[in-house]
């Protein structure tokens, strides 16, 4: 539970921490999109340098990012090996019947690997430098056009906000219940799969009961404080677009343009 980095906020006060969540979200989505524009090593080099630059800018150590990739490493390696095995073209290095490893396969494998890691790194940058609540505000703002199609954007974002608000409590409670049951002699991470599943009951039941109780309490609190989902609500949280946010978007546009140019003039590899 403690190893998962993706989705956590790391308090700090870097340039990136101060960026508007909308700018960060748009830039990150943009970046992931243009990963697919790069088709040669010059393009990838540029993207990798940019990623490293952004990570540096966050003021958070490289070790943290690498820990973020670790849980996903098998998924990445699996995809990469599929790419290597099933792409043909160029010099063939290995040919054992159905298994062939070709030049294009290898190059593609490397590209896919880089793409994966960059996607993880960039999303980690966003979550590490943005408070969850700001992220929700950003998502709310970006989804707001959907209101035209009668999507309950505000309700969704209020739900998200409340869920985020109670995640630390839930983690705390899990820890407490686990401690209490360990004190009564349970050991976790031992025995067969069935036994381990059985050991989860004394953890999950209490959490379930307390979450229900909490949900009831919350519903009462919200009602007493005048929450009605059908009524229009104003918002106390205001996002402020600053010059640095525009700068971030302009940088992304510049990066995109450069990539498109490199696609025209750089070395060209087929997939």
């Amino acid at each position: 539970m403690n190893k998962l980095i993706l989705g956590r906020y790391f308090p700090g006060d870097s340039w990136l921490h101060k960026l508007d969540p909308r700018a960060k979200l748009v830039a990150a989505i943009g970046f992931i999109a243009i990963l697919f524009v790069a088709i040669n090593w010059q393009g990838y080099l540029l993207l990798i340098l940019f990623t490293l630059f952004v990570m540096r800018l966050s003021g958070i150590s490289l070790k943290m990012y690498i820990r973020g990739v670790r849980p996903l490493i098998w998924l990445i390696l699996f995809t990469v090996s599929l790419q290597i095995l099933f792409t043909a073209g160029g010099t063939v290095y290995v040919d054992w019947g159905p298994i062939t490893i070709s030049q294009y396969g290898l190059i593609n494998g490397v590209f896919i690997f880089c793409r994966f890691v960059m996607i993880i790194f960039i999303s980690t940058v966003v979550t590490l430098t943005t408070k969850p609540i700001d992220l929700t505000d950003g998502i709310n703002a970006l989804l707001s056009p959907l209101r035209l199609f009668k999507v309950p954007v505000d309700d969704i974002s209020l739900m998200l906000t409340i869920a985020l608000r109670f995640i630390p409590n839930l983690l705390d409670e899990t820890q407490k219940v686990m401690d209490a049951q360990r004190a009564r002699g349970t050991t976790f991470g031992e025995g067969s799969l069935v036994e381990q599943m059985k050991k989860l009951v004394p953890i999950i039941m209490p959490l379930f009961v307390s979450s229900l109780k909490r949900a009831e309490d919350m519903a009462d609190v919200m009602e007493v404080r005048g929450y009605q989902s059908s009524k229009p609500r104003s918002s106390f949280r205001k996002l402020a677009w600053k010059r640095k946010d525009t700068l971030a978007i302009v940088t992304m546009l510049a990066l995109t343009t450069t990539l498109v140019l490199l696609r025209q003039f750089g070395t060209y590899y087929m997939y």
Binding site: A183, G185, V201, P206, S210
Partner: peptide, 28 residues
């Protein structure tokens, strides 16, 4: 150690989980 040290945490009722009181007490 855990057998000889009994721990009553804050709000210990939040550790109850079993179907009956007897099962819960027998858990330890």
């Amino acid at each position: 150690v855990r057998q000889s040290v009994g721990m009553v945490f804050q709000f210990p009722e939040s550790q109850l989980f079993a179907e009956t009181v007897e099962q819960d007490i027998c858990f330890g």
